[in-house]
């Protein structure tokens, strides 16, 4: 099983809130891989809008996206784009 992890700085000016959060979850759900998002001590399911929102990741905060599964590589690639684009 492939496991990929990537540390990313949130670039979106509204943070990982609002539409980016919804988009993130929608994309995450396209993949079979298990997706986890970590910020400091918090760790949430990346396929859950509740989880992502509760993470409260503002612009500039550092998060780690972890994907585990066959399509983990691709998942990270696409999710990264959302978080890093401004």
């Amino acid at each position: 099983m492939t496991k990929v992890a990537k540390q990313i700085v949130v670039q979106k000016k509204e943070g990982l809130h609002a539409r980016p959060a919804a988009l993130f979850v929608q994309i995450a759900n396209k993949f079979d891989a298990k997706i986890t998002v970590k910020r400091d001590a918090d760790e949430v399911n990346g396929k859950s809008i509740m989880g992502i929102l509760m993470l409260g990741a503002e612009k500039g905060s550092v998060i780690i996206i972890e994907a585990e599964g066959k399509d983990a590589q691709q998942a990270i690639k696409e999710l990264e784009k959302i978080v890093e684009s401004e």
Partner: peptide, 13 residues
């Protein structure tokens, strides 16, 4: 309602 559906299908919940 997209947001509503996301909440509805929320795995964590």
């Amino acid at each position: 309602f997209d947001a509503h559906l996301l909440v509805l299908e929320d795995r964590m919940l």
